[in-house]
Amino acid sequence: MDDSQLLRGILEGCILSIISKEETYGYKILSELENLGFDNVFESTLYPIITRLEKKQFVCCRREKSPFGPTRKYYSITKAGEDFLSEFKNNYKKITSSAEAILFEVNHNER
């Protein structure tokens, strides 16, 4: 089953959450996503999401020469980004618990 529809909804929040832990850069974000099980997230997916987060001012970036030579962008979360992430996490919890209840027939009382 094509999971891109599901991914589309949550990837922005996941990437923002990774950035919120510490200042980071593109390759590190991709590696962390891969380690956490997101095998099908590539640079072509990551780049527009981070650009969108920057435009919305949820993340800010600074440019520095990487150890390999090219200019590297280091991203860190802003106050607006932290507020958005907190709201995202609340919405995610609400939606997933309702979805779990339907998909896995978890009894409301047991929850």
Binding site: G26, S66, P70
Partner: peptide
């Protein structure tokens, strides 16, 4: 900007 970032990622991944 795009190619610079991509190149950095490529070199990092190549190193790994």
């Amino acid at each position: 900007e795009r190619l610079g970032e991509l190149l950095d990622i490529f070199i990092s991944a190549q190193e790994d």
